[in-house]
Each structure stands twice: as structure tokens, then as C-alpha cells.
């Protein structure tokens, strides 16, 4: 058993598209692992990410990072103190800052120029540094968002359906860049996704959620196989 870097065992009521759900999840992330959160819409994938980031407080239970308690009934560590990176579904780039300033915003202390150059190079956005987010394509915005989230070399990277808006070949390219960076930093990553292929390529662990509960987890192939079998049986019933 690998050392658990992050663990979560909590409940949280949440709403999605007007329906209310209750998340009751237990999750352990080992250091340097890449976990894919999968499941239908409203399963609680985004809520789980937000709980880990500290953008939501659990109703009960504990979230901790190694020996530090992040959220518990008596304690709460604000998101800005958690040393994480978060890539939002809408990228959330700052409209008033150019690409370079957006990425520089992510540095905690002084801007490390070598690291900045490296980020620009890996994500192929060197030529865009003076552009405002509004003038970028979807794929370019995605790369800037990733570079910004990685600027502070976070210990935990949270990705909320980051590739949902991109076309197939672009996804492939960015996946490669992301994998390269994560390997370099030994960052633990959690990604919410709908894409089976993406989960298999990027993740080493898949957690399948339904109605706020973990129904299955394990190596991508096994979880997906089980899910496919289940789907087949359902189809047969029909």
C-alpha cells in the first residue's frame, strides 16, 4: 500500500440542474497518483473536486492532506493555503490580464522565470504571452489555464472536465503535455471526466460515482470493464 497523500471521508448535500443530491464518499489518493472521477452528470464529480479544493465545506466528515486536517467539523483550511492547482471547466482566465500576467498570477512568491519559460514552452504558448484571453482559441485558453494552475508547482492538481470543449486531436496533444508536466513535478492529480479513453490514457486509478456514492474503483481497465458489463446487461434487459 502506497502512502496516502490525501484522504476524504465526508458527506455533502449539493444541487445539480435543480435536483438535489447527497454526496457520501470515501476516497484515498496516493502521492503522485492520477485519479479519474467518472460517472453520469450529477454524480458528484465536481462537488468532490470542490471539496478537495476547499471551495465547499463538507456537512460532516474529514478531509485531510497527510497529517494536516483540511476540513473537519472544527477546522477549515482556506483554499489559498492548500497549495493546489485547479483547472475550471470554463478555464476562468482573468480577462483583464494578458497570457503572461495570467500565468504569473499563479506564482506564490517571486516569479521563477526559468519555470515560466518552461511552462510556456511545454504548452506551446510562447507566442501568445501578450494576448488577452478573449482573443485566444479554446485550445489556447486550455493551455494557459493548465500553465497557470501549474505555475506554483502545486502538490495537488484538480481538473474539472478540462478537455470537454476541445476536439479530438487537440485533446491528444494537450494530454501529452499535461502528462509530461505531472511526471516532472510528481504532482497528485484528480480529474473529473466523461471521456473513457481519456481516463484510460491519463489515469492510473478510476473512481466511478453514481448519485453521490462511489460504486466502483480500481485500475482503469477493470473499472471500465465492469462498467461495460453492467451496461451490456442493462441493454439485454431492455
Amino acid at each position: 500500500m502506497v502512502e496516502a497523500a490525501y484522504s476524504l471521508d465526508c458527506t455533502k448535500k449539493y444541487a445539480d440542474r435543480g435536483r438535489s443530491f447527497s454526496l457520501e464518499a470515501e476516497l484515498t489518493l496516493s502521492k503522485g497518483s492520477f485519479t479519474a472521477l467518472m460517472g453520469p452528470s450529477g454524480a458528484g464529480k465536481t462537488t468532490l473536486l470542490r471539496l478537495l479544493a476547499g471551495l465547499e465545506k463538507p456537512d460532516s466528515g474529514v478531509i485531510s492532506a497527510s497529517e494536516f486536517v483540511w476540513s473537519s467539523p472544527s477546522a477549515f483550511v482556506a483554499p489559498h493555503l492548500r497549495h493546489i492547482g485547479y483547472v475550471f471547466q470554463d478555464y476562468a482566465l482573468f480577462p483583464h490580464l494578458n497570457v503572461k500576467a495570467n500565468i504569473q498570477y499563479g506564482f506564490r512568491e517571486e516569479v521563477d522565470n526559468t519555470w515560466l519559460e518552461q511552462l510556456l514552452t511545454v504548452f506551446k504558448i510562447q507566442d501568445l504571452i501578450n494576448d488577452r484571453p478573449a482573443s485566444l482559441s479554446g485550445g489556447q485558453q486550455q493551455r494557459v489555464a493548465l500553465a497557470r494552475a501549474l505555475a506554483a508547482k502545486p502538490a495537488l492538481l484538480l481538473l474539472d472536465e478540462p478537455m470537454a470543449a476541445l476536439d479530438f486531436s487537440l485533446r491528444n496533444e494537450i494530454r501529452g503535455e499535461l502528462k509530461q508536466m505531472l511526471g516532472l513535478l510528481n504532482t497528485t492529480a484528480v480529474m473529473a471526466t466523461h471521456d473513457l479513453l481519456e481516463a484510460t490514457i491519463l489515469a492510473d486509478h478510476v473512481v466511478w460515482l453514481e448519485d453521490g456514492k462511489v460504486v466502483r474503483e480500481g485500475a482503469p481497465r477493470e473499472v471500465l470493464k465492469a462498467e461495460l458489463l453492467r451496461l451490456k446487461e442493462q441493454t439485454r434487459d431492455i
Binding site: 471551495l55 483554499p79 489559498h80 485547479y86 482573468f94
Partner: peptide, 24 residues
């Protein structure tokens, strides 16, 4: 998501307000 992004990038409420929200 703008202010949440700023929080996750290590900025406090005050920094977020003046560096991200007010300019927008």
C-alpha cells in the same frame, strides 16, 4: 470561477478582490 480560480492560486480574499474583481 474568477474569484475561485484566484483562491486556488494562493490569493487571499483581499488580494482577489483588488487584483481580479475590481479590475473587471
Amino acid at each position: 470561477s474568477l474569484r475561485e480560480a484566484s483562491f486556488t492560486l494562493g490569493k487571499t480574499r483581499l488580494q482577489t478582490f483588488f487584483k481580479v474583481l475590481v479590475p473587471n
